[in-house]
Design a binder for these strands. Structure first.
Length: 441
RNA sequence: GGCCCCUUCGUCUAUCGGCUAGGACAUCUGGUUCUCAUCCAGGUAAGAGGAGUUCGACUCUCCUAGGGGCUGCCA
């Protein structure tokens, strides 16, 4: 029986979760699911200034939004473990692996800190699951502080002790911790705990190759959520930034991700964030959204508009058929469909100028309205026949374009005849005539 | 400065010594079409440079160049 694999995501809650960070969470989560291990969440909340209840809640919200949950065991709070941290320090002091010294810090604080005594010779080595074999001479790493002069434990110590206490077997974290790993391994040894496996993930960088920050655009999970991205799309995109399934699939279900994910295939090199591809990915997920889900989002967006009441399921289904492939972001609704539900829809001035404010358009619209009025059944096919007859194979553009702007106020949208059918006879005719009177010379 | 790591199309990547270097995004062209979007067909575009090992190197080794990370009483 092999040991259970336990991984953890250990962010310090600052109120915003960086995409690089959440990608680490995603990789941890997938790895745990893939091997049937445990995914643990540890909140490194020792910075009392920033680790407010709101910041912690924001972190939880992001995790839930992406479908990562809050871990397979109760959330571990670093601040709750300070007593243990300091007990370990006492042992280290007793064994001579740590010592106290008076120092002056960078920012001018002078006081007694506890230092960890690094080995002075030999090589520290480990096999990084993504980067391969890593080695560093112990002499290249100076002793480092583990307890501040105010008595509070420092990251290196707290992090290692917590990992021991949570029985973490695989530490999968950002590349920026590689150098720390050599120190941490020495700590594990001195404490007498087994050394976990390590995997260091490359960073997400900007066009200049520097760490991707808020100056480069949306950098935090919440911003993508607010911008209308689907969590599955962000998840999938972030996963592909540094890993691929080995074949040419890119849009993957969560099940496929879990079964195919492999830490050893994760890339060593930094990846540039490509918003265009994320946008494409989002479109793919919207297209694949179950129709009922898309329909629900659509209905919700126009809830309360008077025209939204009384439509039957079939009507909404037909609207879905028209809108789902045309939607880039769910939050573009209701804007994109509002005109179906209110007669005081907005007219795009450019569209009016181009399609309505021209000589001859008025006559065309009124003539068409009269002809439309005579169709026996108000459906797309019948309406199209009317325009087909008029255009006599010359192209329906001159009739279609003005009508589209007249009934919707815009130049793009569903197929015109489907649009008219959905709008209904009464509204369509009234709108065509009203627009002709109002906007045409 | 020191230590560690990285380097295939503009971007994300495939290739685990045989490559006419494949896919996706972006971009361009064409088709479908009443617009937009979708969809379909096609095009442009890459192995940082130099040595070596080998019958053969994008794949292995070394050097150079370029990039990144770390070098806190921050995590």
């Amino acid at each position: 029986m092999t040991e259970e694999i336990r991984v953890r995501f250990a962010p310090s809650p600052t109120g915003k979760v960086h995409i690089g960070n959440i990608r680490a969470a995603i990789y941890n989560w997938l790895y745990a699911r893939h091997v049937g291990g445990k995914f643990l969440l540890r909140v490194e909340d020792t910075d009392l200034e920033r680790s407010t209840p709101e910041a912690i809640q924001a972190l939880f919200d992001c995790m839930e939004w992406l479908g990562l949950g809050l871990g397979d065991e109760p959330v571990f709070y670093q601040t709750k473990n300070v007593k243990r941290h300091l007990e370990v320090v006492e042992r280290l002091l007793a064994s001579g692996d740590a010592y106290k010294v008076e120092r002056t810090s960078r920012d001018g604080k002078t006081g007694v800190v506890t230092m960890f005594r690094m080995p002075k010779e030999g090589t520290i080595e480990f096999d990084d699951i993504v980067k391969g074999h890593m080695a560093k001479k112990a002499e290249d790493i100076p002793d480092f502080a583990i307890v501040r002069s105010d008595g509070s434990p420092i990251f290196h110590l707290a992090n290692v002790v917590d990992d021991i206490d949570q029985r973490v077997t695989h530490i999968i974290r950002g590349d920026d911790h590689v150098e720390n790993t050599f120190k941490h391994i020495c700590l594990f040894r001195a404490i007498g705990a087994p050394i976990p496996h390590y995997g260091h993930l490359s960073m997400i960088v900007n066009a200049q190759g520097k760490p991707y920050s808020k100056r480069d655009g949306a950098a935090f999970v919440g911003e993508f959520r607010d911008a209308g991205y689907l969590p599955e799309a962000l998840f999938n995109y972030l996963l592909l930034l540094g890993w691929n399934p080995g074949d040419e699939r890119e849009v993957l279900t969560r099940e496929e991700m879990v079964s195919l994910f492999d830490l050893e295939k994760v890339h060593v090199t930094a990846a540039k964030f490509d918003l265009k591809k994320l946008q494409w990915m989002n479109g793919e997920y919207i297209k694949r959204l179950p129709r009922d889900e898309f329909k629900a989002a659509m209905r919700k967006s126009v809830e309360g508009l008077e025209g939204a009441a009384g439509r039957d399921e079939a009507w909404w289904d037909r609207l879905c058929d028209q809108m789902q492939v045309r939607t880039k972001f769910l939050k573009d609704m209701p804007g994109n469909i509002e005109y179906f539900f209110r007669d005081d829809y907005a007219f795009d001035p450019k569209a009016v100028e181009k399609r309505l404010a021209k000589d001859g358009v008025k006559a065309t619209l009124l003539d068409l309205a009269d002809r439309f009025e005579k169709v026996a059944t108000w459906d797309a096919v019948s309406l199209e026949v009317v325009v087909k007859e008029l255009s006599q194979g010359q192209g329906m553009g001159p009739w279609v374009h003005p009508v589209r702007v007249a009934v919707s106020g815009r130049t793009e949208g569903p197929g015109l005849f489907e649009l008219l059918e959905l709008l209904g006879r009464e509204h369509s005719l009234a709108r065509i005539r009203a627009a002709a009177a109002k906007y045409c010379p």
